[in-house]
Design a protein around this nucleic acid. Structure first.
Lengths: 141, 141
DNA sequence: CCCAATATTTAGAACTATTCTAAACTGCTT
DNA sequence: AAGCAGTTTAGAATAGTTCTAAATATTGGG
């Protein structure tokens, strides 16, 4: 028998993804990355991810969750979204797309980029490059 | 001579504007409203408005500035904008329009509504009414 | 396999923007 | 002028986030 643990494909893939952006696949990052990227696209706050990790028995501190969210964002694995001044959301969908924001419930929902068309974007003064366009459709729900 | 101070037209107009939305034209609100609405359209943070007021010799507390910004917003005299999770901006332009956000300098600039056209807004689930659409064009400057 | 170098994690303190509290004060109506 | 509701205020409190500096983990080299 080979010395490797069997069926560790997904872990390896995650670790590789982290290494490919220059990050060490530490236990904490692996666990957080699995929670973040293991399922479909997600929107999380730092506190929510922290609770989820603790709930799943992962030994990680809140500071590390913040660290990970920020490094992942800096490396392009996540995208940060500001909807109200009280907290940040992190979106695992890093492709161009927009959002529905349910103001009462605080829920966030993706809108496919194809569903929003922006015509005639005005010139930026001095041709300063646009880093991102955010469209947030706030609804009452 | 009449007992009224001459040339108090603008003050009266301001007071009337406050009264018309059900707010007492107190000394503090009048002073803040004058700073906010006395010049062209503006974007301010609570701290910035507070410093400005203090600098202008207005006796007002920071709590009152927050109170005023929120009541004015609730009464439709201002619009609140969240660009990053660290603080809120208040915009004296309450008409439908969008923004350039200079990420480095923190400056905010209006974009005329006519310059942005959104096509094919997706349906909101269950026809929940849209309360607002925010378009923020983030630029490097 | 062990070690040093470097990156990462962590608890807890610190910070920032904002909200709350409850007491003092002010504007408005009678 | 009196009284009541609306407003202001200082300071305490809170929430989310960042910082600090010490402990620990990961990695590449010997």
């Amino acid at each position: 028998m080979s010395p490797e643990t069997p069926a560790k494909q997904p872990q390896d893939a995650l670790a590789e993804q982290l290494r490919s952006v220059g990050l060490r696949p530490t236990r904490q990052r692996m666990a957080l990355a699995e929670l973040l990227f293991g399922q479909g696209k997600r929107h999380v706050t730092a506190e929510a991810l922290y609770s989820e990790a603790i709930g799943a028995g992962v030994h990680v501190s809140l500071a590390t969750v913040y660290n990970a969210l920020h490094t992942f964002t800096a490396k392009g694995l996540l995208r940060e979204i500001s909807l109200d001044s009280s907290r940040s959301y992190f979106d695992t969908n890093t492709e161009e797309h927009h959002h529905f924001y349910y103001e009462k419930s605080g829920r966030l929902e993706d809108i496919d980029n194809a569903d929003v068309k922006i015509g005639r974007l005005p010139e930026t003064p001095d041709g300063i490059p646009v880093s991102r366009v955010d469209v947030i459709i706030r609804v009452d729900g």
